[in-house]
Nucleic acid binder design. Sequence first.
DNA 1: CTGTTTTCTATACGGTTGCATTGATATGAT
DNA 2: ATCATATCAATGCAACCGTATAGAAAACAG
Lengths: 198, 198
Amino acid sequence: MPRPKSYDREDAIAKACAVFWEHGYQALGVRELEKLTGLNQFAIRSEFGGKEGLFLETLAYYSDAAITGELSPMLEGGIDEIVAFLRGLVTPGSMTASDFGCLIVNTGIENARVKSPRLERAIQDYWATLEHHFRCALKNESDWQNGPAGIARADLAKALVSAVMGIHAHNRALRDKTAGLDLVELLCTTLLNLRAVK
Amino acid sequence: MPRPKSYDREDAIAKACAVFWEHGYQALGVRELEKLTGLNQFAIRSEFGGKEGLFLETLAYYSDAAITGELSPMLEGGIDEIVAFLRGLVTPGSMTASDFGCLIVNTGIENARVKSPRLERAIQDYWATLEHHFRCALKNESDWQNGPAGIARADLAKALVSAVMGIHAHNRALRDKTAGLDLVELLCTTLLNLRAVK
DNA sequence: CTGTTTTCTATACGGTTGCATTGATATGAT
DNA sequence: ATCATATCAATGCAACCGTATAGAAAACAG
């Protein structure tokens, strides 16, 4: 029987997620990664397939947590659920509000250089999923195809995706998890108005 | 008399700006920087004070170009000028529309790790300037302090700053300078509506 | 042509990168 | 107790990092 592993896999990924979130992918060396996660170098290679492999698992872990924990109410909900999600982005204590922004946003900006196809796909999938959730909530809310001000549902969903990126980017740039608050409230007002005049 | 320099200072900064914009700050090595800008390593040290010095001049160059070339109309203009600026962010051919996003946004996300105080200040100054320009244009437009939907002018200006970050981040993440188009149009609609019911 | 000045090219430096290798170590089965 | 197995800590590797230094090269003054 083999020697037992000195780490808990899930726990290690959670720690890796936190440190990649804060420091970024390229900037974080393997040796620093060891110290911060409690993993040893051999484990990073054999268990995760090196630094990029660990990072990919981290992205999946982060995405799953966000989707099941924060996005999912929008699948069955409406504008109220969109509003709740948006407010969560700038609410201290919420999973999606962080001084370090969003791991996916950060990676999307980094990866324009790294150009890893695997990272690329993880990122695009996440944004497609977010857009899908917005679409669902907007569709659930009503049967309008074109809003009162000529706003198409599909376009509004895409616009919200850009806005979410901006809220996260602002939070990180200012190291303040509430930096994007004004955009959040503007969007909430717009969405609630949209329903009022529906 | 000294040996003449083999480079044009302004031209070198413009090239450095382009490559930092595309590849980021940390990710771009000095040797690669040499090749891409035509500068030699000695010049980077003696003329600009090393890699960070060159990058700071690059940030100043980028900021000045954006402020004088794209932001300034908002100082004397109104909502029309804000709309024109926002549309420029996703209009191919515009200086502020790029597959690589925005140098300041990218740096703001990188610098959460780099933690250089000099970079920090350049970034914060830029966003403060952008917010100021939005404020001016909104103030010029009318004398309302609180918009019809309870939107304060100062809050709207801050919201627009977050939105600009999001548009750039989306453009870069998708390597498509029009990715943020839907948010741009949503904001334009909101702004023009705001004026209509003023 | 010589001397002075500044930039140039080339090389060197210590430190870090991600990954690979090696021999010790810890487990349960036999 | 011995063995098989897989993980561990430690070290080595070539490549790169940003910077520093040294000698060659290019300009003009005298």
